[in-house]
Amino acid sequence: MINLKGIKKSFNKSEVLKGINLKIEKGEVVTILGPSGSGKTTLLRCLNFLEKPDGGMVQIGNIKVDTEKATKKEMLTIRKQSAMVFQHYNLFAHKTVLQNVMEGLIVAKRVKKKDARYRSELVLEKVGLKDKLHHYPSQLSGGQQQRVGIARALALNPEVILFDEPTSALDPELVGEVLSVIKTIAKEGITMVVVTHEMSFAREVSDRVLFMDGGVIVEEGTPLEIFHAPKEERTRRFLQRISGDSFFPPLKERVN
């Protein structure tokens, strides 16, 4: 379904991705964890050619592209296989909520306006924004904006939705509403790749967790394996650092 072979990417001679191999099955929810600078966001952006990999092969659905020889047309075709939800929402500021969702359908997918509108209203209802159709992004809260971002991706009915730290820019109290929307669509069997720092979310939703560090996938496994029995030292240290409470030994030990 998604198949990456030997994906490499460097920025100014510093190698960010050192040959990533990854297979993702249809309907699978994969989360990518890792310290900042580990290349997880770059990997995600290489999947839809927002960054053009320096080498390797990308396959999504039936479209297969050799990144070294990728033409503009190939890049566009493979991009249309996926949709992305961004950390900073990146909604089209001059378009209303409804127009934001319809835009890709009408312009890129050439769906008739009436059908696009129908479909857009449907997904907006799913993310709980039916009453905000004609608002501009600037009139919405962060959580609402990100839900529009999710609706925009969902409306395209892509092979895979890529989430790039979808809750990192949100106020803590708004994280929940966005995560619950993502959970709902995860249950519908849509293939998702999620870069996140929300450990409990990763544990609860994903079928598989990847841990990346230094441009390679250090470890992968089910959430149970990664969170409760990590094999690699680097994974263990990262998880310890992330969950602040593990700095403190359990209460019982302290009492004794």
């Binding site: 249309k80 990146n90 089209f92 835009e103 890129a108 925009r152 395209l156």
Partner: peptide, 30 residues
């Protein structure tokens, strides 16, 4: 106009030309 919007336009499958004339320019001119 933020590059993020341009990337979002690409991510929904727009071409360079469509992204410029439908997303970036209307805001740039305003």
């Amino acid at each position: 106009v933020s590059t993020g919007q341009l990337e979002a336009a690409y991510s929904v499958g727009m071409t360079k030309y469509q992204a410029m004339f439908r997303i970036v320019l209307p805001q740039a001119l305003a």
